[in-house]
Design a binder for these strands. Structure first.
Lengths: 185, 185
DNA sequence: CAGCCCATGTAATTGGTTACATGATTTT
DNA sequence: AAAATCATGTAACCAATTACATGGGCTG
């Protein structure tokens, strides 16, 4: 689908950036819903440049170190807008190893079942805490015309997702306990 | 991580199956959290067989048509149990194009923003309905020692996930409307 | 006998991760 | 002086999708 291409164009459409800065952006802001390592980013920048969708100038840091500051071209902007203004199917499926393990968990020992669920619960709790920590940084909802508004929205999306995961694991634990109770009878 | 390997071993650990039946299983039961096309399954079966983790016998349907019915070996069972009884990290990140688009949505026209969100909302509603339809098929929660119990649990997980997505989109719409109201002032 | 489902495979390509490789700059 | 971070790239490999390729069996 070439989604990485549009993620990069979208970021460059907001600010000029180096490959390094792009990869930091992927690690932080976009991390929850799109990630890419520098080893994927640099080649992609090369090919976007070859296509004429982005350009770069070289800047010097210190005495020698060169960095390439990329900017989007008009053609790049056109290409991005076209992508931006199309509908897209929701993600109904996604690979999730935890859920796969849970699917097969009935085959494991009752002791391990308990440990597994407790571990998943605690991991999700920690992650949710972390997200809420980030949410605190917005001491109020940013104005809708601010760049930070998008950051806020996707963060909220991640919070909802974690909360749902937590509720689910809790339900799994509850149903598991009912089972133990039944077995004791 | 070789997760496909364990998905297949796990399914064969429950029932003997042909490659075709495995691929149907991926399309239906496992679809929400792990998917694989037949073009990935057949080569994987070949290599699992070469490793001695699974075996097959040939059965004839009709007069000529051969099918390979795969069974898991003792070695395969051992390998699977080892995987089954280990903890695993939760999925904190996953590629989701809808969320990426939403992240960049502030750049689109107000008209399109509305259309995009309404479309996402309706897609999620339809998908949730579909999941609830499946849930109805379990007219009560299956007994915890039943194979169907796992099916039920992961279905519940998918329901929670969809509900969260719906709530999130609704919040996005609400915040978007507040913006329009502000702009009118 | 047409159309759909059963059944199995391979090939080409894309997407993505891990590892390899190098070196400058800044901070402690 | 060491450690962390800035900065850019390539190579090898693994995972996954799309397309190619073939043919039998069943139902209307």
């Amino acid at each position: 689908m070439g989604t990485l291409k549009y993620a990069i164009l979208g970021l460059l459409n907001r600010n000029e950036m180096t490959g390094y800065e792009l990869s930091k952006e992927f690690e932080t802001t976009l991390f929850e819903f799109w990630n890419a390592k520098h080893s994927q980013i640099y080649p992609e920048l090369k090919s976007l440049n070859a296509e004429g969708l982005i350009q770069y100038r070289v800047e010097i840091t210190g005495n020698v170190l060169e960095k390439k500051v990329y900017t989007i071209t008009d053609e790049g902007r056109r290409d991005f807008s076209e992508w931006e203004e199309t509908l897209c199917p929701i993600q109904t499926a996604s690979k999730d190893e935890s859920r796969l393990r849970l699917f097969f968990l009935d085959g494991a020992s009752p002791d391990f079942q308990q440990r597994f669920l407790a571990d998943q619960l605690s991991q999700h709790q920690k992650h949710l805490e972390h997200l809420l920590e980030n949410q605190k940084k917005f001491d109020e909802i940013p104005p809708t015309d601010d760049r930070a508004f998008s950051d806020y929205l996707v963060l909220r999306g991640a919070v909802y997702r974690e909360e749902a995961a937590l509720q689910w694991i809790q339900e799994c634990i509850k149903l598991g306990e009912q089972r133990s109770a039944e077995l004791k009878k």
